[in-house]
Design a protein around this nucleic acid. Sequence first.
DNA 1: CCTCGTAATGCAAATGATTTGCATTTTCAA
DNA 2: TTGAAAATGCAAATCATTTGCATTACGAGG
Lengths: 125, 125
Amino acid sequence: MVLTKWREKILKTIEESEKPLTADEIYMKNNFKPNFSTVYRALKFLENKNLIKSVSFDTGQKYFYSNKKHYHFLYCIKCGEIEVFNKCIATQLEEFINKNFNFKITDHVFYFKGLCKNCKEDEKK
Amino acid sequence: MVLTKWREKILKTIEESEKPLTADEIYMKNNFKPNFSTVYRALKFLENKNLIKSVSFDTGQKYFYSNKKHYHFLYCIKCGEIEVFNKCIATQLEEFINKNFNFKITDHVFYFKGLCKNCKEDEKK
DNA sequence: CCTCGTAATGCAAATGATTTGCATTTTCAA
DNA sequence: TTGAAAATGCAAATCATTTGCATTACGAGG
């Protein structure tokens, strides 16, 4: 169970991106290498090793991003655009959960749904 | 485009549940009626009409819940259990987004990932 | 340096959730 | 009452992801 060259390449692709990526975006960015199954297996591997995280929006597709980043998202429900921001207020809520629930928090996901600037404009027409 | 008896039944199922439900949970709760495609079409219809909302966790499966409820989630990454809570601190963040981004917020999704009480116990073994 | 076992990869087929095309049935306004 | 539009059922298709199996690469021990 090691960080092979492909896994390393995939991790690099993810870390260098300023947005979360889907499996096929990663596949394409690496010129369709390695094999698709290898991409998926690598993603699973990297996620288990806590090097990357994933989030899914409305589409049933997973988006992957580096664990080094603490992202939150603006997700456009019309065109699917994903914009990221970093400001986070989960800490207060975390205290609340720790106090009131028997649950061990390891991570959190937060995103706003709505309309991005383009789709917002479209609506006016 | 009306609220037919099946759509109404499905909406009722969702509203009466204290947890978000998947399409097949809804299907089962209604004794496998109506047809699966009708369930999916009804869910899409209800979501467009803003009567229900959906969220997806790690599995690529959608969970549906009533729009009347403002849920947030504790999602167990091991067994998939979903617990809900209502406390919300999104408002402050919302102000921040409105001030700094050109994005029209229509909704938000928040959940903690982690281990539920059972899985937390399992880990100790 | 060889070599053997384990882990990683490639390929094709399978899976699971969801969607779609099309034929049939229901609904409801004229 | 009737005819068009919408809703439903059924089966097949789709999309993202996973799996089985044969092949290849890698690393420790000889």
